[in-house]
Design a protein around this nucleic acid. Sequence first.
DNA 1: CATATGGCCGGATTTTATGCGGATTTATGT
DNA 2: ACATAAATCCGCATAAAATCCGGCCATATG
Lengths: 156, 156
Amino acid sequence: MNLDIDRIDRKILRELQDDGRIANVDLAKRIGLSPTACLERVKRLTRDGYILGYGARLNPEKLSAGLLVFVEVLLDRTTPEVFERFKLAVTDRPEVQECHLVAGGFDYLVKARVRDMKAYRDFLAGTLLSLPGVRETHTYAVMEEVKESGTIHIPP
Amino acid sequence: MNLDIDRIDRKILRELQDDGRIANVDLAKRIGLSPTACLERVKRLTRDGYILGYGARLNPEKLSAGLLVFVEVLLDRTTPEVFERFKLAVTDRPEVQECHLVAGGFDYLVKARVRDMKAYRDFLAGTLLSLPGVRETHTYAVMEEVKESGTIHIPP
DNA sequence: CATATGGCCGGATTTTATGCGGATTTATGT
DNA sequence: ACATAAATCCGCATAAAATCCGGCCATATG
């Protein structure tokens, strides 16, 4: 499956996932290659879709997004339009970080970051509950973020 | 609250969150500042803890992590050691991307990426269920990732 | 009013990215 | 096995970017 990339490629991906702004010279030094060869590999990994992009990791606490909540949403299984409508609404709400269609007891699992409980109430009432077809929601406020790596494990 | 950063700082943060590898020269051009002044601000934002780091966004599908699952975990409320043990175990399992202590019907919400259902069964039985004090788990496999931005909204 | 402070700019210097040619290895087909 | 093609590597040269430094201007401060 992913055997078109070798041990060196995986090392590059691990390094870049950990520090996306590392200079190519330093990256090359770490993995034991010349800068040219290293850059060549990074370009190939990008072209082949292994690397999707780069981003800064920001501090939610300092940016008025200190409250993390998960919301389970159950829809009325009436029309596909209800699902479509929900997806669209959730997509352009900036406080929604993730939204997944899941198999199991409910339909959608939403992960959102808001300023505080008041902001969450506004989000719940103003966005989620005002959508047509939303039958039921369960909210889980996060008390402690035990782990938030977001990294994908790359076997050696 | 966060009014020690101005409109320009927020613009910088937005840009860097979207493209963490943008050259400082280009970033400066976008926000309408000289490269020197721009770099100064980025350094300050980093020093003051707004920017925590940088990372490459990798493609899970191509890296043997195509199955995303959420697991609700309910613990026996016996000892703090049980909680501590659970946190430690979850922290060093590489397939676990996130783990949150939540308020509500269960204790921990775990987000993990694994190769496939077989890998998930191994993870569930070999890691989660073999921990002491785990009373109950509910698994939700993700069928469709509607949104996975991971970005924090920064108001203008 | 004089001075200090902070933020910005432009130019000089160091560091990095990138393009190119050639050598070596690996894969492929006969 | 052999020849050819493709991939990968390196070192060097050049273009581009990061970083340092001095000076300018605005705002605050005594």
